[in-house]
Design a protein around this nucleic acid. Structure first.
Lengths: 103, 103
DNA sequence: ATATGTGTTCGATGGTTATCGAACTGTAAT
DNA sequence: ATTACAGTTCGATAACCATCGAACACATAT
């Protein structure tokens, strides 16, 4: 009960909206899933497995970053993305809190 | 562990997308919260507490119904809405399942 | 320096959608 | 039947957004 330092139980209204928006596009959700399926994911790989341009991928990554659903780390010329599960948990928590979910 | 009969662990891809989309608009989310805050909620009340027209409210209700996030029951000239928490739970479950959440 | 490969930015475009207002339907009264 | 209230539907409009392609910036080589 001491390893994880800061896990916010709730999100700001702004971030809540950003997360909901980020999750609402099926393609972006698929990208997030792909990232989640591995520890790290270079952007180039994503370009290869989805029929969209580099520009579009970059745009989606920016949105996911804005929502803090992923983190990015530069590794040479690559950028590795990782799913930020704290944000995801905070989002579902907030969802339940707002809708009076007792579970 | 026997009272609840049918709580689907997952959603169809289609419904998952519909739910995510439905939750992504702040106004619609606010409407859902309002509905969740009381047992029943007539549409007219919603029109009064949000600065939007009847038509818009009706439109949002239709989207929430399509996602099966609410149910509607006619009571005379009124229509009462109720939050469908099974769908909400199924959505968060599916979200966690897709993103490899171990929690 | 030049070349190559990775990612970003930007303008344009087409599709989606939140919104209004007005016409319409439906329900319940008098 | 008509009046009044509740909700839906529809056309129009404006804002938003996913997408592309091209130009750019950045990193790593040779």
């Amino acid at each position: 009960m001491s390893t994880r330092a800061q896990t916010p139980a709730t999100l700001t209204t702004r971030q809540f909206d950003l997360v909901a928006k980020a999750l609402s596009d099926p393609r972006r959700m698929a990208l997030l899933e792909a990232i989640g399926s591995a520890r790290q994911y270079p952007c180039q790989r994503l370009c290869e497995m989805f029929p969209v341009s580099k520009g579009t991928i970059s745009h989606h990554m920016k949105e996911l970053l804005r929502a803090e659903l992923i983190t990015a780390k530069r590794d040479g010329q690559y950028i590795n993305y990782e799913v930020c599960r704290e944000t995801l948990n905070a989002y579902t928590n907030e969802l339940m809190r707002r809708l009076g979910g007792e579970a």
